[in-house]
Computed example of a mutant assay.
Amino acid sequence: MSKIYVIGIGPGAYDQMTGKAIRAMNESDAIIGYTVYVDLVKEYFPGKEFMTTPMKKEVDRCVLAFEEAKKGKTVSMICSGDAGVYGMAGLMYEVGVNYPETELEIIPGVTAATGGAAVLGAPLIHDFCLISLSDLLTPWEKIEARLLAAAQADFVVCLYNPSSKKRHDYLQKACDLMMKYKSPDTICGTVSNIAREGQEAHVMTLKELRDTQVDMFTTVFIGNSQTKEINNKMVTPRGYRNV
């Protein structure tokens, strides 16, 4: 039976990858992924066969991985962060229905929520949810409903894909929705280029976040009613007494 590893490479730096991810890529004949992510790992795995597809060609990328495995190769399909969090794991299982002879193994990685949280301090210590602001595959009406529900329930909210050239005002819209239930003074944070060159982190209020410029490489954290700033770090208490 042929095998494909579906690997979350974390932010992309070698020391941010798990040992299991590194071993799997070393064992692979071919490494396949989105062009940007393959470029992040190329230097660490010389001698491998690298194949890429651009954005919006995810299905083609999965088919390519299965077709290469069909030739007898061990293949690594890589994605940033964690393969099972807005990653390729689900699509690989869907496409894999047509390739029953190929075994899939999912290898987790550090997703932006946990990687960014470590930079900001400790924002995810209590209940939280992840919401992507990209409406490429999800209608904005559904995203809006999820934002409102999360705000009303006082979740800490971590936003992926907060902005792009076509969605330059989506973070503003999200903040306006949040402020229907959250105070404008709610502590928030942003981290861009997590664990990569040019990493930046900022702690601010929800009102200030609304007018902050972000991009697709930024992860946004919106606190709950108990989240506070401690020494310029974003901290959400778990609820321990006598602290």
Rank of each mutant, 00 (worst) to 15 (best):
S2K: 12
I4Q: 01
I7C: 05
G10Q: 07
M17G: 01
T18S: 13
K20T: 01
R23E: 04
M25L: 09
E27L: 14
A30N: 05
Y34G: 01
V36H: 04
Y37W: 06
V38F: 03
D39K: 15
L40P: 00
F45P: 00
K48D: 00
F50T: 08
M51F: 12
T52D: 00
T53Y: 08
D60I: 14
E67M: 14
E68L: 15
G72I: 14
K73H: 03
K73R: 10
S76D: 00
I78V: 12
D82G: 04
D82R: 14
A83W: 06
M92L: 09
V97Y: 05
E101V: 14
E105W: 13
I106W: 12
G115N: 11
I125L: 12
D135C: 09
T138V: 10
E141N: 13
E141D: 11
R146H: 01
A150H: 05
Q152T: 02
V156K: 05
Y160W: 07
S164E: 03
D169G: 02
Q172P: 00
A174W: 02
D176H: 12
L177P: 07
Y181D: 05
T186G: 03
G189A: 06
S192V: 14
V203T: 14
T205R: 08
T205L: 07
T205V: 11
L206E: 00
K207S: 00
Q213E: 10
M216L: 13
M216W: 08
T219A: 09
G223I: 10
Q226R: 14
N231P: 05
M234R: 08
N242P: 01
